[in-house]
C-alpha cells in the first residue's frame, strides 16, 4: 500500500474532510481517489500533485500530496 496525503478545498470539504493521510494500492490514479471520494468529475477545477498540475490519469506514488479544488468561475 502507498500513503497519500489528500487535501480537499472549498465545497469538497463539506461532508468529507480538509486533509487526510490515506492508504491506496500501488498504481492508484487521481481518478480512483476522486471516485472513491464521490466527487463529481464535472465539478473538479484544479488537481495539484506535489504543487504541480496533473490530470486524472496520473498514478500516485508513496508520500504524494494530492490537492483537489472545485471549479470556481464566478465574478
Amino acid at each position: 500500500m502507498i500513503q497519500v496525503t489528500v487535501k480537499l478545498f472549498a465545497s469538497f470539504r463539506i461532508d468529507r474532510f480538509d486533509r487526510e493521510i490515506r492508504e491506496y494500492p500501488p498504481a492508484t490514479t487521481v481518478a480512483d481517489v476522486v471516485r472513491e471520494l464521490k466527487i463529481p468529475e464535472t465539478e473538479i477545477g484544479i488537481l495539484l500533485l506535489n504543487s504541480v498540475h496533473v490530470d486524472l490519469q496520473r498514478q500516485l506514488a508513496d508520500n504524494d500530496v494530492l490537492a483537489i479544488f472545485p471549479l470556481v468561475g464566478g465574478g
Binding site: I46, D55, V72, G74
Partner: peptide
C-alpha cells in the same frame, strides 16, 4: 492555463452556490 486545465465547458460551483454579498 494550469488552474483550469481540466475545464472543458460550463460554469463552476457558483452555479450551485450562487454568490453572496461578502465573497466578492
Amino acid at each position: 492555463q494550469k488552474l483550469y486545465a481540466n475545464w472543458t465547458a460550463g460554469k463552476g460551483i457558483e452555479s450551485t452556490f450562487g454568490n453572496p454579498s461578502f465573497t466578492p
